[in-house]
Design a protein around this nucleic acid. Sequence first.
DNA 1: TCTTGTGGTTTCCTAAAGGATACCAGTATC
DNA 2: GATACTGGTATCCTTTAGGAAACCACAAGA
Lengths: 116, 116
Amino acid sequence: MKSELCLTHILPIRDALDIISGKWKIPILTALCIHKRRFKELHRDVPGITAKMLSKELKDLEINGLVKRTVYETMPVSVEYAVTEYGHTLNPIIFALRDWGLKHRVKILSEDKVEV
Amino acid sequence: MKSELCLTHILPIRDALDIISGKWKIPILTALCIHKRRFKELHRDVPGITAKMLSKELKDLEINGLVKRTVYETMPVSVEYAVTEYGHTLNPIIFALRDWGLKHRVKILSEDKVEV
DNA sequence: TCTTGTGGTTTCCTAAAGGATACCAGTATC
DNA sequence: GATACTGGTATCCTTTAGGAAACCACAAGA
């Protein structure tokens, strides 16, 4: 049945979206995939994010085992965020999003030229 | 530089998220990828969606060239929605999300067993 | 002593996303 | 005559996401 097949595809997708949806989680993970970072570094490198959102999203990501938070007792303390091994299993999604975004931008730009 | 590299990865991802984010667009596209469908069929096959959201999301998807709407002058009229060729370029994202969602569910279930 | 940097928290607010319900015309079916 | 089907729209409402700005302790450097 078409409808049942549909469910077996949609339900896991909903599970994934529940965890990574929103404006910031994928961008944060993307930055951390390139290199682990400290809080203020992330704040600078993820354009437009506020400290409040960054803090909240990092907590969510840590709860779901995608990001690991490590505190170093320097003065002042430094806190390092890194993608966990499990977090790296999201790489195919991140790559697919980036790849599509790049192609989409090319498409939009070429359409603009035709219209003008 | 780490920060500039970061931008070249994050900006296209943001472009992609702008178009497909939200609770319903990917589930709708997933259903249509399996087979084209009429409005009421979609309403039944995408669990939990309201007619209002379905109508709105389909319009968004049509505007972005991901879905094609075709009206047949039957009695009563029937309207068919199908994924466009361009819409199918989202397949890698959809597959990656589904794949991860399935693995994630397995992981969660196995963790529950250990905890109990 | 003033600023800068560390990693955040707190409060207040707005905008957007999404849900519930009722409703529309027209036809076929019971 | 009532019901169910077609593909939606309109209205009202709640919830959530997200943003702005102020603030915290502590230490180093100018």
